[in-house]
Structure formats: structure tokens, C-alpha cells
């Protein structure tokens, strides 16, 4: 089974040279830590920076330089700042090649819910709806089950949707799955996890091919 860093490490393998990538809050943010040295990749944060760097050294933090999670960050050489309309022009205009974000629920048709629990948590969608509506390549990073142990991979979402039919790939602590033809297609198992474990934790339709290799994340 993977921890959060393991999930991020596996997703980092999906990133290609020359890509602009938007990383959401939480596990997705960790993906930046596992990009191979020398790979030409720029991270976009929708509050208005391209070329986001690591967290600053203690004492170097700047209140005017934050990411979309409101964390203090740094800017890499070649970075650029811009306004929110320009930022979403990059996103909506499909100039960003990969979006990685978290989710509360993902459905077998690619629907995603991650912004609201009616009557309980009402924080808002931030940029998530714009991101999922436009990105060609969306990977969801999340735990396979919620805190109560219930599957987050469902026949259909029970929570208010963030976007419809948009998720292409899900990477969890248990597995990598692709979404197509109304089902989750098992691609890889996490180290030490069996196909039976994954099937038991997946409420949605799961297609299991003959051979399901174990992830190689070293």
C-alpha cells in the first residue's frame, strides 16, 4: 500500500518533458518533489504564477508570493506572474497539459465530486470546476477509501459534482486505474496489494485484466 508520498511519486511518472502542470492542494502538491532532475516542467498555480518553485527557506517567506493553497512559495528562474483572468485563460485555453487534483468521490463515468458536502462543508469550488471542465488530461490523486472505510470509487457520485465525465486516470494508495467506457480499468497494483484487495475497496464497476503488474515506484 502507498502512503501520500508514494501516490505523488507514482503520479510524477506520468509527467512528460515540456509540460505545464497544475497541481491541486494536498497530495497533488507533493508531486513536484518527485520530478526527475533535468526534466523541463513548469508548475502553474491558478492564483497567478507559472514556474512555481519549492517552499522558501525559513525567514525568506514573502506574503506576496503564495500558491493556490495560500502557502508561501518561491519562483524559479523564468517564472512569471499574471492576473486571475490570464491564469484561467491558460487553463480553459488548454495550454496546461496536466491537472492533478484530489477528490472526495470519483464515478465510473469520470464524474468527480470534491467541493461540497451539503449541510456540512461548504467551502466552495475555487478553481476546480474550471480545471476539470477544460483540462484534457486529469489525474485524480486520493486515498481509495474515506475515513469511514467506504469506497471513493463509485457507480455514481452521491455528492454535488465538480465536473462531468472528465477524469481519465485515478491513482490511489491501492492502485492505478483508467476510466473508460463507464468503468474503472485496473492498470497497476500498489506494492503488496492484491487484485482482491482492490476489488473489495472499489464500489464502482472494475474491469480487471489478465495481468495486473505491480507499480514500480523506486
Amino acid at each position: 500500500m502507498l502512503d501520500k508520498n508514494g501516490i505523488a511519486k507514482r503520479i510524477a511518472q506520468e509527467v512528460r518533458n515540456g509540460w505545464y502542470v497544475n497541481l491541486g492542494i494536498g497530495i497533488p502538491t507533493l508531486v513536484a518533489n518527485f520530478i526527475p532532475e533535468g526534466m523541463e516542467v513548469e508548475f502553474q498555480s491558478e492564483n497567478g504564477i507559472l514556474g512555481m518553485g519549492p517552499f522558501p527557506m525559513d525567514g525568506d517567506e514573502d506574503a506576496d508570493l503564495i500558491n493556490a493553497g495560500k502557502q508561501t512559495i518561491t519562483a524559479m528562474p523564468g517564472a512569471v506572474y499574471f492576473d486571475s483572468a490570464t491564469s484561467f485563460a491558460m487553463i480553459r485555453g488548454r495550454h496546461v497539459q496536466l491537472t492533478v487534483l484530489g477528490a472526495m468521490e470519483v464515478a465510473q463515468n469520470g464524474d468527480i465530486a470534491n467541493w461540497k458536502i451539503p449541510g456540512k462543508m461548504v467551502k466552495g469550488m475555487g478553481g476546480a470546476m474550471d480545471l476539470v471542465a477544460s483540462a484534457e488530461n486529469i489525474i485524480v490523486a486520493m486515498m481509495h477509501t474515506n475515513r469511514a472505510g467506504a469506497s471513493k470509487l463509485l457507480p455514481s457520485c452521491s455528492l454535488p459534482l465538480t465536473g462531468v465525465g472528465c477524469v481519465k486516470r485515478v491513482v490511489t494508495n491501492l492502485a492505478v486505474m483508467d476510466i473508460k467506457d463507464g468503468a474503472f480499468h485496473l492498470v497497476e497494483r500498489a506494492p503488496g496489494v492484491t487484485v482482491q484487495d482492490i476489488a473489495a475497496a472499489t464500489a464502482g464497476k472494475l474491469v480487471i485484466p489478465e495481468n495486473v503488474p505491480e507499480m514500480n515506484i523506486d
Binding site: 525559513d58 517567506e61 502557502q71 508561501t72
Partner: peptide
């Protein structure tokens, strides 16, 4: 004031 909501830094020793 320029308050920071999520002060996130690397400590100099571990960096």
C-alpha cells in the same frame, strides 16, 4: 500587515 495564511517553509538544516 500582509498576513500570511499558510506559512510554509523549509528549515535550513534539513534543506
Amino acid at each position: 500587515d500582509k498576513r500570511i495564511e499558510q506559512r510554509t517553509v523549509q528549515t535550513r538544516e534539513t534543506a
